Amino acid sequence: MRTADSPARPVLGTIAVVCRHFGGQDHVILVQRGKEPKAGWWGFPGGHVEMGETAMQAAARELMEETGVAATPLEYLTNVDVISRDATEAVQRQYLLTVVLCEHQGGEPVPADDAEQAEWVPVAEIESRGLQLLDQVGEVARLAQARWRALSR
């Protein structure tokens, strides 16, 4: 069962994963969501792909809007399926998120748009910091880290 304001099909979204090495560790930018769904949860900057833009363009735009960080999209890493269900297991919303690896160009994360907080988080500490993480954040961060290291050689 769908709600009146939910689409009849999955929605395309994108997330930007920016890796950077400093302080002896690899870091990624995470944001704490300031709005529903999942207000208060931590994940990668991202959002809807707008008509006429690619998911890679949308990732860079959403990153800038949510954090003020400029980055160049490098490549698609994977996809993440997000399916929200109600208490009866009926699908309420469904998103297909493209994961885009981005190269940091400038700026430090400052929360804006619908982000409550934004910061560089060491990949090795993502799951031990006590943050309420969205699905697959740790897994995606490690995938991005491995690919970013391979590209940086």
Rank of each mutant, 00 (worst) to 15 (best):
N79W: 11
A70N: 12
E125G: 05
L74D: 05
E125N: 03
R93V: 01
A90C: 09
E66P: 15
P73N: 00
W120I: 01
Q105I: 08
S84N: 05
S128N: 07
V100Q: 13
L97S: 06
H104R: 10
V123K: 06
T88E: 05
T67R: 08
V91E: 04
Q117E: 13
L74G: 04
E119W: 13
R129K: 07
E75V: 06
T72V: 13
W120V: 07
E108D: 06
A87P: 01
G68A: 12
V69L: 13
Q94F: 04
P122I: 00
H104W: 03
L97K: 03
V69S: 08
V69Q: 08
G106S: 02
T78A: 06
V69Y: 02
L131F: 03
G106L: 02
E66C: 14
E125P: 08
A71M: 01
E103W: 06
R85M: 01
D113H: 15
T88L: 04
T98K: 02
Q94C: 02
S128Q: 02
P111W: 14
L101Y: 13
E89Q: 14
S84I: 05
Q94L: 02
E66K: 15
A112D: 08
V91C: 00
P111V: 14
Q94Y: 13
I126Q: 01
L74V: 12
P73C: 13
E116I: 13
L101A: 03
G68M: 07
L96G: 11
V121T: 12
W120R: 02
G107W: 11
A70K: 03
T88Q: 08
D113W: 13
G107E: 10
P109F: 15
Q117T: 14
R129P: 01
V80F: 15
S128D: 02
E66T: 15
Q132L: 10
V110A: 12
A90E: 12
T67F: 14
V100W: 10
D81H: 07
A118W: 15
T67N: 05
H104Y: 09
G106V: 00
A118K: 04
E125I: 06
N79T: 14
Y76A: 06
A118N: 12
E108Q: 01
Y95R: 03
V82N: 01
E116Y: 14
V99S: 09
P111C: 15
A115H: 13
R93S: 06
Y95H: 05
A71F: 05
L77M: 10
V80A: 04
D114N: 15
A71W: 05
Q117W: 13
L131G: 12
Y95S: 03
V69C: 07
E103F: 01
Y95E: 04
Q92I: 06
D81E: 06
P111A: 15
L77C: 10
H104T: 02
L96H: 01
W120P: 03
A115F: 14
G130S: 06
S128G: 00
I83A: 01
